[in-house]
Design a protein around this nucleic acid. Sequence first.
DNA 1: AGTGCGACCCGAACGC
DNA 2: TGCGTTCGGGTCGCAC
Length: 272
Amino acid sequence: MPEIAEVETVRNTLKKRLLKKRIVDVKILYPQMMESNVDEFKKNVVNQEFVDIKRRGKWLIFELDNYYLISHLRMEGKYFIKEHDEEINKHEHVIFQLDDGYDLRYHDTRKFGRMRLITKDMLDTCEEIQKQGYEPMDDKLTGEYLLSKFKNKRLPIKTVLLDQTIISGLGNIYADEVLFKSQINPLRTAASITLDEANKIITSSKSIIEMAIKLGGTTIRSYTSSLGVTGHYQDYLCVHKQENKPCPNCGTLIKRIKVNGRSTYYCENCQK
DNA sequence: AGTGCGACCCGAACGC
DNA sequence: TGCGTTCGGGTCGCAC
């Protein structure tokens, strides 16, 4: 599932293939995922060229001549580049036909992803984008900032790390890994986190995201006809999806619990 | 304001 | 084997 590192990898990969390409047609096969009016979307996106690809948290932002195409991959959204005459897969929901004989195809088995076209001046007022908190690599993310956000929260710290308005980009996997590296029990309330621990959360997030981006970069599968992203970070996970495996620190078997409905993995010995 | 929970989806995993 | 059921994951919107 794409978290910040995967979205960054998608961004870097697509950038190499898409810049200066022009959209000559678009097919929307699953209109429910389109938050813009479908007819307007088609009308406006056709004949636009890809100028840049940006990212904010888990949002991908395709910069076109006159618009931003903003796209959230949610759980399983992927972009593929395929030759235009290749058969359409049943999970391909939006097909952008490019001027070079290829398509950019949005593929999403769960149909959870969303996309929308906005004019350039709308980005500053686009709520989903603007309400994102600081990203792990942002210097503005400080222990003091986190404490001010955690102050009145009685929710488990694990749940609060998934709140994109505080730290932008962490998902269920990295939240578990960050808490393990910070040696913090996922069930602790956010309000109970000390300044020291908040700083640990920040340094852990930075190093984990940095490594994940590097791994994503080295493990891209790029075929001649398509281009998906399968990072290899899963080979380096300490706790997430590691139930009943030994903790890399102390050997205690990793526990799996539910925290506010989400699977959560941790070492009960290391994370008090 | 903070919190809790259902809805959105459907393939995979599980239970019988 | 084949069926039915449950689960999961990010985010939103609504109720409390």
